[in-house]
Design a protein around this nucleic acid. Structure first.
Length: 674
DNA sequence: AGCACGCCGACT
DNA sequence: GTCGGCGTGCTC
């Protein structure tokens, strides 16, 4: 009897995306367990491939003679069986390659982390934890969802929440004397998810929580450390070194933990998974940038189905994707109970141009409220764009100033700075207007800096703070001040802002694209939820359904309406989409192979810009969710069929490795130009 | 990817 | 007769 290892190869080639059988040499038999890294020969002995052992069997299904595993890289099993199953299913869903998914899920080898893990005391287990109630919802509501391993779309508690400080860590300050720890202020959603995760952990199961932003990771970690001991919280984020990731990965496998982080956290090999959760799933940061470009939400859905874990999508503004699952009754609809929602006051823009420019943008009611609130607490002013202005025009003729190098719009990062291109970053030294020859420019529009300057003049003696992408600010003190921030960069305040002004809504809504309304609702609600419980939030220049939804804080309505529209148009997420790019022949053949599985007309093929490969075309097909497996399998087969033949250019010279067909599923980007 | 296998034109 | 062109296909 021979021992056979079934190995997944670390190769992006679709034709190698299956298991290969190798003989396990006798001397490796003890250490060769599922999950270990190996090197194996491929085709001719000299060539080696890296891979992971997925399974050990007595007899493989390969009829020929087996090659032997060349090396066992390390005896540490880094690929957990459930993560292999997850990667396989995620790749299959996206018509992609499992090893591409594994690259996201498993960090490269780190010998130090492995040595430390091998030296651990395997008999040690952390003390059990107890869980506080989940506050802000009907008693036992979310506890029930977690205990039943159910699934829910959860409307977040829309204000900051004070959690009691970490137990047992309170008395070590600088002679504060009294042992009570300071309360920890966290966003409502972070408190909810921390309490939910504590419940999972109290049942000795793990939780995995993915959040879009690095700052969200920090907020969530603070909330978790207020309710759980630090050895129960494991972080996975993009800013970690490889060593930290490798350590976190092994830590997650040893005892039940709460694994938190950005996109990759959803792949954390957490022991005995009991809960998967996401905060603000509509955030575009959840779209993976590496092949096979799978959205974290979809990974979470696959993993929840495989593991049977509870699943929570927490947000203020609901995404159309989650709304779809609610309407299918696949997700429960959970809303907070007896919490204070922001008091949103929609105002129609006033055009009285008296006084300062900023005053003209802000209706007098909002202006008075902000001035009044800024006497006793911080006021948040949300604007659409950073810098001094949204653009520059010629001071003489008013013509828009453009970059000489790339033609992009010029902007001004701060008052008096040399104009700079917003696209390529080139400095426009010695700018001359091509229309009239004048050499001076003036700003148009209102960036964060310009708004701050104007508010500074209007509110003398008030501290003005600016927060944007280039000057990030995590937190400001709960003292009188005015904080001008671009959408998404709003700092937190312990206890919340006294008042919130949402200024540039109209401008944010003017952008083209399928998800604009969803995004803008997220920007508004996430900012409004930084206000103190029940604080006023002025929504400037907005009327209609969106204003009503904000004022009533009923945010599933717009998602429902939006989804209804998309169903009529056969747009995602009412349907799924597949984008096929390549030679005319390959794309046409792929479209024909999908015959019968699609919904709505085929879009294209149309020529697309591809400087490396002229003659490239793209087609988009829509298909119902029920046909997902069939469509993905068909397209994967087409990709494999095309991957060995390489395309011939006009000159007759063959291009190396230029695939004739590329396939991407659920890429909504082509629709954002609609 | 790479590299072997294989089936048609000019050569010792 | 065979040497070698690169189209096709496979990799345990």
């Amino acid at each position: 009897m021979t021992t056979v290892a079934r190995v997944v190869l670390d190769s992006p080639l679709p034709q190698l995306d299956r298991l290969f059988d190798y003989r396990v040499p006798a001397e490796l038999e003890d250490d060769c367990v599922p999950g270990v890294r190996v090197k194996v020969p491929l085709r001719t002995g000299a060539r080696m491939s890296d891979g992971y052992v997925v399974e050990i069997v007595d007899e493989g299904d390969y009829p020929g003679e087996l090659s032997a595993i060349e090396t066992l890289v390390s005896p540490v099993p880094v690929l957990a069986p459930e993560i292999w199953k997850l990667a396989r299913a995620v790749a299959d869903r996206a018509a992609g390659v499992a090893s591409d998914v594994l690259r996201l899920a498993v960090p490269t080898r780190q010998v130090r982390a492995e040595k430390a893990w091998l030296a651990r005391d395997p008999s040690w287990s952390p003390p059990p934890v107890s869980a506080p109630p989940v506050t802000g919802y009907a008693e036992g509501m979310l506890e029930g969802v977690i205990a039943e391993h159910d699934r829910a779309a959860v409307a977040a508690v829309p204000h900051p929440v004070a959690l009691p400080g970490p137990a047992g860590d309170g008395g070590d300050g600088d002679g504060d004397g009294d042992g009570a720890a300071d309360p920890v202020w966290v966003p409502g959603w972070a408190a909810t998810l921390a309490q939910a995760a504590a419940h999972t952990l109290a049942a000795e199961q793990s939780a995995v929580i993915a959040v879009p932003d690095f700052r969200d990771v920090i907020d969530l970690e603070r909330a978790l450390l207020a309710v759980l001991p630090p050895e129960r919280v494991v972080r996975f984020d993009a800013k970690q070194t490889n060593g930290q990731r490798a350590k976190a990965l092994l830590q997650a496998r040893t005892h039940p933990v709460v694994a938190i982080g950005n996109r990759t956290a959803v792949y954390a090999p957490a022991t005995d998974l009991g809960l998967i959760a996401m905060w603000d799933d509509g955030d575009a940061s959840f779209i993976e940038q590496r092949a096979p470009y799978v959205h974290t939400r979809d990974v979470a859905l696959v993993r929840a189905a495989q593991s049977g874990a509870a699943l929570l999508f927490v947000s203020h503004a609901r995404s159309t994707d989650v709304q779809r699952l609610v309407e299918l009754h696949w997700l429960q609809d959970v809303t907070p109970f007896r919490v204070k929602t922001p008091k949103v006051i929609p105002t129609v823009q006033q055009t009285s141009a008296e006084g300062y420019a900023a005053q003209a943008r802000i209706p007098s009611s909002a202006w008075r409220a902000a001035r009044e609130a800024s006497q006793h607490g911080p006021v948040l002013v949300q604007v659409a764009s950073p810098g001094f202005g949204t653009g520059l025009v010629c001071a003489e003729c008013g013509e828009r100033a453009h970059c000489r190098i790339c033609g992009g719009p010029l902007g001004s990062p701060h008052r008096g700075a040399t104009p700079q291109c917003r696209f390529c970053g080139a400095l426009a030294v010695g700018f001359r207007c091509p229309t009239c020859g004048n050499g001076t420019v003036k700003p148009v529009g209102q960036g964060a800096q310009r708004t701050a300057d104007e508010l500074g003049r209007a509110f003398p003696g008030t501290r003005i703070v600016v927060a944007d992408g280039s000057r990030p600010l995590d937190e400001v003190p709960a003292r009188p001040s005015v904080v001008v921030a671009t959408r998404g960069a709003e700092p937190s305040v312990p206890g919340g802002y006294a008042c919130v002004l949402l200024l540039d809504g109209e401008k944010m809504l003017a952008r083209e694209g399928l998800r604009v309304q969803e995004d803008v609702l997220r920007f508004w609600t996430n900012a409004a939820a930084k206000g103190a419980p029940g604080a006023e939030a002025y929504l400037v220049g907005i009327g209609g359904k969106l204003a009503t939804a904000m004022a009533l804080w009923r945010l599933d309505g717009p998602a429902h309406d939006e989804l209804t529209d998309r169903r009529e148009l056969h747009f995602p997420p009412a349907v799924r989409v597949a984008t096929m790019t390549g030679t005319d022949e390959a794309v046409t053949a792929a479209v024909e192979a999908l015959e019968g599985a699609t919904a709505g007309p085929v879009l294209g093929p149309v020529p697309v810009e591809d400087d490396a490969l002229p003659g490239t075309v793209r087609a988009i097909v829509r298909f119902p969710y029920a046909h997902g497996a069939e469509v993905a399998a068909t397209l994967k087969a087409e990709v494999i069929r095309r991957s060995s033949t390489r395309r011939v250019l006009k000159g007759g010279n063959r291009r190396r490795a230029a695939p004739t067909l590329r396939v991407r599923l659920d890429d909504a980007e082509p629709f954002s130009e609609v």
